[in-house]
Computed example of a mutant assay.
Amino acid sequence: MNQKVSPRFNSIAAKRLAWQTLVGLILALGIGWLVSNAQHNLDARNVASGFGFLQREAGLPIAEHLIAYTPADSYLRALVVGALNTLWVAFWGILLATILGTAVGIARLSKNWLLTKLMSAYVEFFRDVPLLLQLFLWYALLQGLPAVRQALNPIAGVFLSNRGLSLPLLDWQAAHSWVLLVWIAGFAVTLTRMKWATKKRLDDGRQHATWPIGVLSLVVLPGVLAILLGAEFKLDVPSPRGFNIQGGVTVSPEFFALLLGLVLYNAAFIAEIVRAGIQSVGHGQQEAATALGLRPASTMRWVVFPQALRVIVPPLTSQYLNLAKQSSLAVAIGYQDIVSVATTAMNQNGQAVELVAVIMGVYLTLSLSISLLMNYYNARIALVER
């Protein structure tokens, strides 16, 4: 006697749930087997597991650190220092590569034949040479610079030697922090005023001045506060002394080479992304802007580039993620990022599984943060259908 299957159990949703449950169970069993196998192998070799080692003394010398650190500190602090070094080079790499790549991408569309060919040659060269080779090249060139006593001095207060790039540094005081906060608040006010002026201009066609608010917020108020608080703007200028450079701030050859390689390499890709985005905007948009009397610079700023951003941002996000992950090549030239610090710690205590997990966690967090910010920005500039 045939029995009818209830539609409830024959539905597509039920089948999907069954398959998903099966796949999840297989994944859970696989992960459990891997963990059990790893634990068995560690026990067989008398290798301790767990993250208790993070509280032990590291004994790792780290030349560059954004927070206070000594070899007597724990492994946890050493890994934090390495993670901050990774974030530091990724931040400056993304910022500078974006500026350079945008400029090169726009220059490739110039009507100047020589400028276009030079930018094309730059893109083809840096995009086609492996990044690791470029890092070796820049590091070798920096190591070939003269010693401190014969340091190059292209600009007053700036020295370039085999110890790195030395720059003047502001002698920071507590009063400077308050002045900076006021300046940031003024910058926010100025941006708000500019957005309001742009919106009003689109509504009534009249020009609304923004410079008085800008001067007051960015110059007058911070200046008056600096005078009242007695903030002195003195520069700590570096000077060669003996075998080292005293004063100022010195960017190490390792950081300089890594940043230079990341910026030049990724800017070539960003330039192509920007060029493609601009070319995706219909030529009729530019003709309409010209008919309205807009100059080429204004056309690019107000008409072409805002539309091009909708094409630029998605691949630009991927390039940012690539740059962040490419920073792990720092270990090849001796810059102590999270990979370098974790690898050294791994050689000392043998906690390979835990330290690899830490490295993966750092890069996963960095990549997800970049994706979150860029997706938020992409949603802000997306077209809203009415």
Rank of each mutant, 00 (worst) to 15 (best):
Q348L: 15
W19V: 07
T290C: 06
L229W: 07
G334D: 03
R149L: 11
L34T: 04
L316W: 00
V215D: 10
L165G: 08
L109T: 11
F126L: 12
S161M: 03
D204S: 00
A63E: 03
S166T: 06
A174D: 02
Q134G: 09
R310S: 11
I370W: 01
A324N: 06
G293T: 14
V274T: 09
V249E: 04
R275E: 14
R149N: 14
L181F: 00
I278L: 11
S36L: 13
V249S: 13
L118Q: 02
V104I: 12
V331S: 08
V189S: 02
W211T: 08
N41H: 12
A38C: 10
A197T: 01
Y376D: 13
L66R: 09
I273W: 08
M194G: 13
R56V: 15
W172N: 14
I370Y: 01
I338Y: 00
L152S: 06
L366P: 01
A209Q: 07
L25D: 07
V281E: 11
L145F: 10
A231P: 11
A209I: 05
L372I: 04
P212T: 11
L218M: 11
N2P: 02
L180P: 01
L114W: 09
Q207A: 07
W113C: 11
G101S: 03
A209S: 11
D73A: 03
L27P: 12
N347L: 13
G293K: 15
N244Y: 05
T116V: 14
A226T: 04
V23R: 15
A352M: 12
G105Y: 04
H283A: 11
L152E: 01
Q39A: 09
I227Y: 07
L25G: 06
G230Y: 11
P314D: 07
Q336P: 04
W211Y: 05
L294N: 06
D43G: 05
K200L: 01
L132W: 14
R310E: 13
G205K: 00
Q307T: 10
P253H: 01
A188P: 05
M194A: 12
G24Y: 14
D236E: 06
L218H: 08
G24A: 15
L170D: 09
A151P: 00
W113F: 12
Q246S: 02
I273N: 13
I99Q: 09
L131I: 09
W196Q: 02
L145N: 06
V182S: 04
V237S: 00
I106Y: 14
K117R: 01
V23D: 14
I62N: 04
V356D: 13
V123E: 08
N2M: 04
L373K: 00
V23F: 15
G248Q: 10
M194P: 07
G284H: 01
S298M: 15
L258A: 08
W113A: 13
E385M: 04
V274A: 10
A185N: 00
